[in-house]
Structure formats: C-alpha cells, structure tokens
C-alpha cells in the first residue's frame, strides 16, 4: 500500500477550510435568522470585527506607512487581497472626484463551492468583505462605505465591490480631557 504521489497541499487545504467554514457560518446564520437582511447585517458586523484586527497583520507584514491619497489606499487594499486571499481584484470605475472606486473580482475564494438557491436573492453572500474593509480602514482613521453592485452568484459577469470615502476620522480626545 504505497501512497507516494498523493500528498495533501497544505496551502490549498487551509484555503478550503476557510471557504467551507465561511459557508457553514452563512448556513447557520440563515437558519438562525429568517430574514436575509439580518444575515447580511450580521456578516457585515463580523467582517468589521475581523477587519479591525486584520489591519494589524497587514501593517506588520507590509510595513506600509500612511496613505497619501485615496488612490494609494485603493492600491493597498488591492495588495491586502493579494496577501490574505491570494487574489488581485482590479481597481476600476473611479468617480470624477476620486473618492469612489470599484474592486472587480474575477474569482472569489469565498464563493468557490457556492450556488445560491433562487429564494435567497436578497442574501449578500460575501457581505463579510465590506465589513472587513470598513473595520480595517477605520483603524487607520478613514471612514469608508462599502457595498456590492454586482455579484457573480447572481449571474453577473464579475463581482464588483464599490468603496466610497466618507471622511477622515480625527484623533479622538482621550476621555476626561475635553
């Protein structure tokens, strides 16, 4: 009984573990909440919690400093996707004011084994991503708004995530020192 030639690819497995775990989470949420809107909200909130921690990993690994402008931010977000999910979304559709852009995903590891049943058209399956972005940006004093405009799970050609700069967060005055 030799098992040469068959060896598990550790990186691939841990990626599948992530994908499937996320799937199990969404399934559980759908069971717990009747309403797809509530599931979206919950996913976004979890993403936020992840984002505020993940930014530390990102800064520690890349050693990148402050962003010069929002275009710089866009590129850094792009590189974060490369590091954490191994994908490179393209940056497109800049608004004339330069405060809004889109991230377009050709492939998305989160949806690798996923098909949406017809009765879940309101569900934003990947809604954890906007949350992650919002949380991470907040930790570097930027308030952004994020939402999906296209979704491959809903038969669009690409998945498009829109990111909008809302405002710069100022350093808060420590409590009791006003």
């Amino acid at each position: 009984m030799s098992r040469t030639g068959t060896k598990l690819d550790a990186k691939k497995v841990s990626s599948e573990l992530f994908t499937l775990t996320y799937g199990a989470l969404v399934a559980q949420l759908l069971q717990d909440y009747e309403n797809a809107e509530d599931v979206n909200k919950q996913l976004e909130r979890m993403g936020y919690n992840i984002g505020i921690r993940l930014i530390e990993d990102f800064l520690a690994r890349t050693g990148s400093g402050r962003c010069y402008d929002f275009r710089d931010t866009a590129e850094k977000i792009q590189s974060a996707f490369k590091i954490f999910l191994g994908i490179t979304p393209s940056i497109t559709n800049w608004s004339p004011a330069g405060d809004e852009f889109s991230l377009c995903f050709e492939t998305n590891p989160l949806t690798e084994f996923v098909e949406l049943p017809d009765n879940y058209t309101n569900l934003k399956y990947c809604n954890i991503l906007p949350g992650v972005l919002r949380g991470a940006c907040e930790m570097v004093q930027m308030e952004v708004a994020c939402w999906f405009v296209q979704d491959q799970l809903k038969n669009d050609n690409v998945t498009e995530l829109r990111v909008k700069f809302v405002k710069r967060l100022e350093d808060a005055i420590p409590a009791g020192e006003d």
Partner: peptide, 10 residues
C-alpha cells in the same frame, strides 16, 4: 489556481 486564503483568516 484560484485564490488561496491566508492562515490567519481562518
């Protein structure tokens, strides 16, 4: 190959 998630994400 499609994307591979980093370990810390899990």
């Amino acid at each position: 190959a499609s994307g591979e998630a980093d370990d810390c994400l899990f």
